[in-house]
Simulated assay, not measured.
Amino acid sequence: MGGKRKNSAGTTSGHSTQEGGQHVKKKEKIVETLLPSTIKNKEKRSAVHAKIKHQKGLEKRKRAKAREAAEQRALELGEEPPLKMIPRTIENTRELDETICKPDDEELFAGNDADEFSSILKQDCTPKILITTCRFNSTRGPAFISDLLTVIPNAHYFERGTYDLKKIVEYAKNKDFTSVIVVHTNRREPDALLIMALPDGPTAHFKLSKLLLRKDIKHHGNPTSHKPELVLNNFTTRLGHRIGRLIQSLFPQDPNFRGRRVVTCHNQRDFIFFRHHRYIFETKESKQAASSGKKIKDNKDEESSEQKVIARLQECGPRFTLKLISLQHGTFDSKGGEYEWVHKPEMDTSRRRFFM
């Protein structure tokens, strides 16, 4: 009887351990199928998330290897390689806009010859910029302006004091300034830019964010006094074209290429990213040239044919982002001014709708 009890106890305990192991595996499978956000236990949630991420990485590497193998096979057989997959982004799925400029738009080019910026862009007059602040100034405002003075040629800083903005505009017109830039600060931080084209406008009001002064940029460069080149990207609509010409009118149209300075205004999703760099071109040997140089040391012509030219950049600053709030006819008038375009919250109904 005692032996039977032991055997029966042994068999029952064996069954229980097998059933327990199967139960644990079932639990693990259930946990794997669940979304990490539905798991309350933090350790289990992070473990499941890491496992899913690892599996996705493995699948991505398998697809990349298969794609490379198919391309190599096509090259060996002399066939056309498979088409590259273009990822879906917010930019290439943008909503259609009737105001997008086309290269054959004669009306647009005819308007360029008669707009407010034509005299500067045709080099009939040189741009002269007056930069000032709001009435309640802070320490970061003049520091930002001192960086702007090194970026924009022929720019002059005047303290605001207690003067009204309309009087400053009249003074700038009498002194033959072509534009006025007002740096607005809030809580000791610059948060807005007002750019006025003189004498007849227009006036653009921008929200300023992500400001990084030159001194805060790691390994920054010091710009020279040469006139910079200007690069404008993705100003594709009528509104974007107008804002691009407004920014273009701040800079001289005869850059000095010897200085190797470039100012970039890149528009992406209606945010204008401002960057200031110095560049240099260098010749560098590719990896193939280095390997062939080890095998064939005497053949110098073959080594020189493998050299390539690379561009190196050094950021000079400042670095900031602009978001257009409004575009107003004429010079700034907060009460009776007419607006060409105003950003309103109800316009942000879709992430794929852009205005510039």
Rank of each mutant, 00 (worst) to 15 (best):
K227V: 12
R260E: 12
L77H: 13
I243N: 13
A114V: 09
G259D: 03
L246H: 13
E19L: 15
R312E: 13
F271A: 08
T11M: 07
G2W: 04
R140L: 08
K6R: 08
L322Q: 02
L211I: 15
K65A: 07
L213F: 07
R352M: 05
A155E: 00
I243V: 15
T224V: 10
R269A: 10
E76R: 14
V309F: 03
I195W: 01
D254E: 08
K25L: 10
P103T: 01
R278G: 06
I39P: 10
L149R: 05
F320P: 00
K218M: 00
E303Y: 15
N112G: 04
C134I: 07
A66F: 06
V231Q: 01
T349Y: 07
E116P: 11
K44L: 10
R67N: 09
F281R: 07
P82H: 12
F281S: 06
E19N: 15
A143V: 11
K56L: 10
S209W: 00
K215L: 11
E282H: 07
F177L: 04
T132K: 04
G10P: 04
E95L: 13
T139E: 13
S138L: 05
T237I: 09
E303P: 09
T93F: 12
S16T: 11
E285F: 09
Y279C: 03
T203E: 03
Y171H: 14
G3Q: 12
N174M: 11
S209N: 05
R245D: 03
L130I: 07
T12C: 02
D176S: 15
C265I: 00
V262K: 04
S16D: 08
E315G: 05
M196V: 12
I181Q: 01
S291E: 15
D270Y: 02
G2C: 06
G293N: 09
N256C: 07
G3D: 14
R258S: 12
P190D: 01
A70Q: 13
L313A: 02
N256F: 04
R140P: 00
D301K: 15
Y339W: 06
K29F: 15
R214S: 14
P255K: 04
F251N: 04
K102C: 04
L198I: 07
K175A: 06
T133E: 04
R245G: 01
T17K: 12
N7Q: 08
T133S: 07
A74H: 02
A192E: 13
F332M: 11
F257P: 02
I30C: 09
L148M: 10
K227H: 08
Q123W: 14
S249L: 04
K26Q: 14
I90T: 03
S304K: 13
I145N: 03
Q307P: 06
L313H: 04
N234M: 11
H241Y: 07
T11C: 09
L230Q: 01
